[in-house]
Structures are given as structure tokens and as C-alpha cells.
Amino acid sequence: MSLENLTQDWSRYRNGIEEGGFHNYEHRWGMAIDLNACIGCNACSTACYAENNLAVVGKERFSKGHYMHWMRIERYWDEDQAKAEFPDQGANFLPMLCQQCGAAPCEPVCPVAATYHTPDGLNAQVYNRCIGSRYCSNNCPYRVRYFNFWSYPESAWPAPLNLQLNPDITVRDKGVMEKCTFCVQRIRVAKDTAKMENRKIKDGEFTTACAQACPTSAIHFGDLMDAESAVTKLWAKHQVKRHDDEGLPVSTQHKQNPALRGYRVLEELNTDPSVMYLERVREELA
């Protein structure tokens, strides 16, 4: 492979919106997460652990921030709640995973191009290239990149637990960064199957592990380039638009109509996330 080819490919996908970005995605995998439906049960997180060979690091390492959960449930409380009789109650849940940004802050800072943008609109992490500089993690506004500070496989999956590992995804070792892939192994299987059958991928043909496990169907997954997909329709319904869709200027990205629930986290950073959240409707206390 010529170096020229590589750099051309990368620069194509790495452009920010200021430079026109990359508007020619084959697919753009996206999500819509309904916070009205989310009950904070952590099934998505558990499913992710099982699907993506995530190591359980133990209490001590967890407290040092060495956790590996690609999908986590963030909890937020209203200020008044601290004074309530049971201050732990009444949390607002927000499942946080890699937002697969269209103009990802993690990509341009990687010194070895281990993270790059795929034609599917995903932020890919190539474990073999990663040298563990952790620039990407420090530049991620969502804090969804996780670093292997230790070698976990032997402690996390002592025999015979190693037999539960998913063979379709690498078991990462010490010194590499990892992150949510939107279950790229499932995407790959769906694409392979569709190609073998000479057809396009159907909406709902496959989904990510988190969406599959969600008991309240709060997570919707699909192709944003497919005008007929459920996710595209949800995005359109809540008037959330991708940057590559009509080349929107930054200012129009902010929600105009308060009656619409759709928003993207930290949208003002202009990262063009592929995950849309639907705001939780709450009773307004006078």
C-alpha cells in the first residue's frame, strides 16, 4: 500500500465541517436514545461487556478511573434533590457511548493515525496501530475512550471464562486505547450477508448489542443515509440534522423549537455526533 493512498483516504474523512467535511458516506450509522424510556437499568452496559470483550477491572482499579465500559449510564440530579429526604433518588439517566462524531476531535490528534473515519461514518480505532499516547482520550469531550492501563485478559477471563469471548472482536491488551464501535462486527456480518445476497442492508436487519438488550427499547439504531430507516425518521421528526446533510452552518444546529425533544450532547462544540438524544419530559415544580 502506498503511503500516498493512505494519507489521501484519511484526509478525505478527517476534514472538519469548515473544510466541507466528507459528504459521501456509504452508510452513516446513527442512534436515537429516548431518555423518556430509559430506566437506567444498565442492561445496555452489561450487553456491551458481553458482546465486545470488555474486561471487568475490579473495584480498586475502577476507583482509579481504569474502567473499560464503552457504554455507561450517567446520572444527573436536580440541585434541589440534595436537600431531599432521599438524595440518591430521582436521578436522570443518560446512556453515554462514543458519539461517532462526524468531525471527531479524537481523530486529528492521533500521532499514528490509529483512529480514523471510515466510509461508514464511524470513528474507527485500529488496535494494531495504537501506541497508547492517549491524546485522543484527552481530546474527547464525551470521555468515552478507554485506555488499557493493565493487561486484563488473564484476570478478567480466567479459564474457562476465556471461552465466552467473542471471536469476532480482538481481545485488547495493555497499552492500547479502545472505544465503542457501534458493534462493527455486527455491521460487518450484515454487510457481508447483504453482499452475498446481492441486496442492500435492510433497516432493522441487525442492531447493536445495547439496543438489542434495552428492555424499554430506548435505543434505536440504524443508517442515517437510508431515508426510510426508523432512525432517520426520528431524527427528521425532531429536526436534528447532520452536518453533511445540506452542509449546515453551525448556528442552525441549535434547537429552535422547545417543543421538540431531540438534541445532541455538546452540540456547540461542532463535533457532529451520530447519536441523538430525546430529552426527558419532566413535571415542572413550581
Partner: peptide, 19 residues
Amino acid sequence: CVSCHEKNGGPGDCWACHK
């Protein structure tokens, strides 16, 4: 592998093969 992908029009995307 990549030399063959270039000659025969296979995908050049890292994630096409790296998992």
C-alpha cells in the same frame, strides 16, 4: 493482502479487515 486489494479493487478501509 493490501497489494491484491489495490490491484483488484478490494476495500482499502482499515476496518474492512482489522477487527
